[in-house]
Amino acid sequence: MKSVALEEHFATAEVMQGWKSVDPRWSDLALKPSTEGEGARRLLDLGAERLDAMNEAGIDVAVLSLTTPGVQNLDAEVAVDLARSCNDHLAAAVHTTPERFQGFATLPTPSPDRAAKELVRCIRELGLHGAMLHGRTRDRNLSEQEFWPIFEAAEALRVPLYLHPQSPQQGVLDAYYKGFGEDIDSLFARAGIGWHYETGIQIIRMILAGVFDRFPNLTIVTGHWGEVVLFYLDRADMLSSAAKLPRTISEYFRQHVYVTPSGLFSHRYLNWALEVLGADHILFATDYPFAHAAPGSARNFIATAQLSERDRNRIGSENWDRLCSKIVR
């Protein structure tokens, strides 16, 4: 079984410096774990250490992406320059090790038109396989029409957009995630649960705003087994008629959204995703370097699941290969 992992992160020293210099209002809670210690060192490495980690976990191919919050909290001009240099850096790594690395583009969403142009460049000139987005751009939700040029370009190119978590806005942090001490507050608002509500809400906002009706061939990938929403679609469906949508929320998910585990190696969650979406809409991811996979755990997770051989291969790599085969270069 071939295994392709889609949420495998990296960063550059220039991007890290950009994160550190941003106005504190827009700083992400991931700043510290992404710029200090072992996590930062592993993010910077696109060489032997990363390949060794892939080998140990049982990953054949890693689809690399800039970690959260990308360049989406930066000033527009800075974001454009850093996104371009980051994508060139990624493309060079993919070119050097094409049998092991693929890549998602970083898009400068503070300038949506240039983000769309950068997506085209990354697909047609650099050979990348889609893009990773991180929900909001500062305080502006991804569903707002100013960002629709990105969706238009992605649909025309037939590339997937991976929607990754970022920290909630400051008002949400203050209202829901404060009061337990700095370290607990931060974890509560990030991996504890805040990231996942934030990302799921961004997808629902896209549905309610009519993004998928305007762009019927748009494909979204999201991690952590659907970012909470997958477990609550029956309830979310009450929004469908109230918003006068032509389909239910569940139907939009089943048609447009693919999910990955992001290192949450739970067969219980896998079984739920199989029941709700089906094996054709499940991909794989380990969330390197933030989720530390035990030796062989990535491959073993799929190998030991109660799956048919056909579904095992679909989830391991074939669904991803099928998406990539549709890309218009």
Rank of each mutant, 00 (worst) to 15 (best):
150 I>G: 10
7 E>A: 03
203 I>G: 01
21 S>R: 14
63 V>R: 02
220 I>S: 05
65 S>A: 15
211 V>W: 11
168 P>Q: 11
108 P>F: 01
17 Q>H: 10
4 V>Y: 10
200 G>E: 09
303 A>P: 04
144 E>T: 05
174 D>N: 13
38 E>V: 09
322 R>C: 02
226 G>A: 06
15 V>P: 09
164 H>R: 09
146 E>Q: 14
12 T>R: 07
42 R>F: 01
283 L>P: 12
225 W>Y: 10
323 L>A: 09
134 H>D: 00
15 V>Y: 06
191 A>G: 11
215 F>I: 13
312 R>P: 03
63 V>D: 01
208 L>D: 08
105 A>W: 08
316 G>V: 08
161 L>C: 09
194 G>H: 07
98 P>R: 04
8 E>Y: 08
126 L>N: 05
50 R>F: 07
40 A>H: 07
279 A>H: 12
2 K>A: 03
288 Y>S: 03
109 T>L: 15
170 Q>F: 03
189 A>W: 12
31 L>G: 01
70 G>A: 04
93 A>M: 06
83 A>M: 05
216 P>R: 13
257 V>S: 07
28 D>K: 10
34 S>P: 01
10 F>K: 03
286 T>C: 10
189 A>N: 05
324 C>A: 15
148 W>L: 02
150 I>R: 03
198 E>H: 14
37 G>N: 09
213 D>R: 07
178 K>H: 08
107 L>Q: 11
219 T>V: 15
288 Y>D: 04
114 R>L: 12
298 A>T: 01
116 A>Y: 02
160 P>K: 08
179 G>K: 04
156 A>K: 15
217 N>K: 15
78 V>T: 12
119 L>Q: 06
174 D>R: 06
51 L>S: 05
58 G>S: 10
290 F>V: 08
213 D>V: 14
56 E>R: 14
222 T>L: 07
32 K>Q: 09
161 L>H: 10
315 I>F: 06
5 A>F: 14
233 L>F: 14
47 G>I: 08
300 N>M: 00
134 H>A: 01
31 L>V: 07
112 P>F: 01
203 I>S: 05
291 A>W: 07
197 Y>P: 01
318 E>R: 14
120 V>Q: 07
190 R>W: 00
323 L>C: 12
91 A>P: 11
76 A>K: 04
253 F>V: 13
130 G>K: 01
151 F>Y: 15
181 G>T: 03
143 S>V: 03
185 D>F: 02
326 K>N: 12
119 L>D: 06
182 E>M: 00
114 R>F: 01
102 Q>I: 00
242 A>N: 05
84 R>K: 09
179 G>N: 06
154 A>D: 13
268 R>H: 12
257 V>C: 11
292 H>M: 02
193 I>H: 13
219 T>S: 13
157 L>C: 13
42 R>M: 11
324 C>N: 11
281 H>S: 04
23 D>G: 06
143 S>E: 09
102 Q>G: 15
4 V>E: 03
296 G>N: 08
234 D>R: 14
161 L>A: 08
8 E>K: 07
309 E>F: 05
14 E>K: 13
34 S>Q: 06
235 R>Q: 12
